[in-house]
Amino acid sequence: MNKIKFIISIIFFLFVASNILAASINKNELFKNIRCLVCQGQSIADSNSDFARTVKLVINDQIKDGKTEKEIYKFLVEKYGEWIVYNPPLNKYNFILWFFPYFILIIGGFLIYILSKKKDSA
């Protein structure tokens, strides 16, 4: 019993030790999540267009002003519509998008559970 406790505590320690993390806005990640409206399926991080440059400038300013990632997304959605963010906000239009995959995951797990619970007769 002691041995198991020991193992568990090692696992726990190693995991927690690896998790003292500092969250900050990753500018490049943010740029990758914003669509360049004048391009074909590119984000502003990937585009050299005038529009992409301007939006990057504006976002840089907003980060300097201490705005959070969420506030920046909200600002852009207000100005350009939801099309501009690759990260669809959770609202009445998009809840199926966000929940359906998990629904499938649960249903699938449930099906396997039912199928495998019966003892093999063969």
């Binding site: 999540n33 939801e82 690759y86 990260n87 669809p88 998009n94 998008l97 966000w98 359906f100 499938i104």
Partner: peptide, 28 residues
Amino acid sequence: LITIFLGTVYPIFTEVLSDHKISVGPPF
């Protein structure tokens, strides 16, 4: 398969059903 399929075609659905254009990308 279903997640990626849903993510890919979801914008089509919102557009047809509610005229609302969205983008589904890497963060999703």
